[in-house]
Write a protein that binds this DNA or RNA. Structure first.
Lengths: 168, 168
DNA sequence: TTGAACTTTCAAAATATTTTGAAAGTTTTT
DNA sequence: AAAAACTTTCAAAATATTTTGAAAGTTCAA
């Protein structure tokens, strides 16, 4: 497998993964392309490389910026914009989780809170089951938040430890 | 908000959440319906409740069984099947993660492993960047696996602790 | 062996999502 | 002020996904 093939495979694999997780295939592909690009790329280059239209390239780059995964770069004396992806995958993962929590989980939590407070007959099995499910979901979200916090702290501590070693 | 409204809202919220995470809206809705149903339900009841066709109900129930989230229940003297969802949301979450890892992450890891081993010019910036990205992704997956393990152990310890208290 | 009571399948139809490309918008240079 | 060099928008077209429903399949009782 030469570089071109490997690159194509990486991009298409990332696209499939994104698409199975509810992210537009093309957005994931643009992200993949930028992740493995040593230099910032222009809209033109992204279009060319992925064979997509200008509108499509533009929208997806914009979305990636909104997701905090890609940054706009301007160069002195040039009018066109360059795009560079955050390369630290751990940062990328944290950012994706943060955004998805904000966009997709938090609105659900708001609804769940409302549902928990609906006045229902305490003898109504159906309603008891619903309130029970809602509370359980909330507690699992808390567990997940906690686990994520722990993972982040663990990582930070590992970093501090590594730095400390360097100077001891 | 009465029970019917709360139920409808729960189902539609769960459907939207599923759909934004790459799970078919209807499968998520069927799951939601069963999650809050104190009794096991028949295909007929699911069709009725969600206003979906027999084919659709059948396929989604089947998929939920494949995902390990719903169980088939047979009753003596009855020919039709009943479906009951796993109600322990923490178990549900673990099961979903396990399945998604198997179905969607593992195939990607296999590809990444291939990509890492492609012989590329070590002086080729492009190829170096690709291999770098691939290695980084692999290491983040490892971190995530580890974090999940830790979260599961933490939960198990909490359980043991609670039991212990009961008997001390 | 037939028929009743179910479940499963899948091609066609319906629906939802994504993509295109050209027009409109913006900013800078001449 | 006009033109050049870009970016953005969005309605229509293309594509992908989901849903339907009727036919086929299965299982069991009579």
């Amino acid at each position: 497998m030469n570089h071109q093939e490997a690159k194509a495979k990486f991009i298409q694999t990332w696209g499939t993964l994104g698409s199975s997780w509810g992210i537009s295939r093309t957005m994931a592909q643009v992200h993949a392309l930028l992740l493995i690009s040593p230099e910032a790329m222009t809209t033109e280059e992204v279009m060319e490389d992925l064979k997509i239209s200008r509108g499509n390239a533009n929208m997806n780059l914009r979305d990636l910026i909104d997701w905090g995964l890609v940054f706009r770069e301007l160069r002195a004396g040039e009018r066109k914009e360059y795009f560079r992806a955050e390369k630290d995958i751990w940062k990328v993962a944290k950012q994706i989780i943060k955004e998805r929590r904000k966009r997709e989980i938090e609105p659900v939590l708001k609804v769940l809170e409302e549902l928990k407070n609906t006045k229902g007959d305490k003898n109504d099995k159906q309603h008891k089951a619903l309130v029970e499910a809602v509370s359980n979901i909330e507690s699992v979200v808390e567990k997940a938040d906690f686990a994520l916090e722990r993972a982040i702290k663990l990582d930070e501590n590992a970093l501090v430890g590594a730095l400390f070693k360097l100077f001891k």
